[in-house]
Design a protein around this nucleic acid. Structure first.
Lengths: 138, 138
DNA sequence: CTGCCTGCAAAATTTTTGCAGGGCC
DNA sequence: GGCCCTGCAAAAATTTTGCAGGCAG
């Protein structure tokens, strides 16, 4: 399973890569992880993998299209397994919870706007920030 | 002019603050500057202002609502004078040109989506990336 | 005068890179 | 054996902070 994805990316199947991919696929509540977070999970699982390797592997996965990198507010990068279906994000500014959504209307408008301004749209990022249902009442 | 804005922000009117505000108001083609860029402009004008001060002042201006801080792809923060009218951005991934736009339909959809997901929307960022008219044909 | 400001240097944070050793094919 | 891969430590890049002196009000 993972081994094939890694091979398809033109990378050797090694322990760090398999482990990191596994963590990203363990898509529980948290599909959106920082490199630091991935690193800590690895440590917690008793793996001896360096933070530099985590960054290297995530960057390689990103180049291969396996993973997407986001820049939410707060400085550091957040990584997410690429599910193949594009979506945007809502981030809770209190607890950090992340929800996903897609909206055809917004997608279409973006293309129209880019075209109107003379741009050849290749990518976009849309992040909504606010208080989630749980944090709203605190 | 600028002095009043600074005073209204509850800050003392000092040379660095006036100078930085002036640079941001010199809204030629480039209204979108990194701290580093502002610093270099100051140096080019012969001012003896430290980079740390540039960051401090920009952060204060941001807190006062005078300035907006953006996180385009590429790591560093970009600052822009707050004109009072909200807008989103299109960024050329080749030459770095920035265009602005607003779209009522997108704005409305964002609110609806946030509400549907239970979020109390406080902020959002929408960046489109692509090749601008000039870079498209290179 | 008093307290906010500033420049400088050092620290903090996040991410990248160099290098020497190891393992896969 | 050759080459890709990894851990470690050092380097980079960006932003923040501590401190001692200065200036606005």
């Amino acid at each position: 399973m993972e081994t094939q994805e890694i091979r398809n990316a033109g990378l050797k199947v090694t322990l760090p890569r398999v482990k990191i991919l596994e963590i990203l696929e363990k898509q529980g509540e948290d599909r959106h992880l920082s490199a630091e977070k991935v690193y800590k999970i690895l440590l917690a699982e008793g793996e001896e993998i360096g933070l530099a390797t985590v960054y290297r592997v995530l960057t390689q996965f990103e180049a291969a299209g396996l993973v997407e990198r986001h820049h939410f507010e707060g400085g550091n990068s957040i990584f997410e397994l690429n599910t193949g279906s594009h979506h945007d994000h809502v981030v809770c500014i209190k607890c950090g919870k992340v929800d996903e959504f897609t909206d055809e209307i917004i997608e279409k408008r973006q293309l129209e706007i880019a075209e109107r301004l003379g741009y050849n749209l290749t990518e976009h990022s849309l992040y909504l920030y606010g208080y989630c249902a749980d944090c709203k009442n605190l």
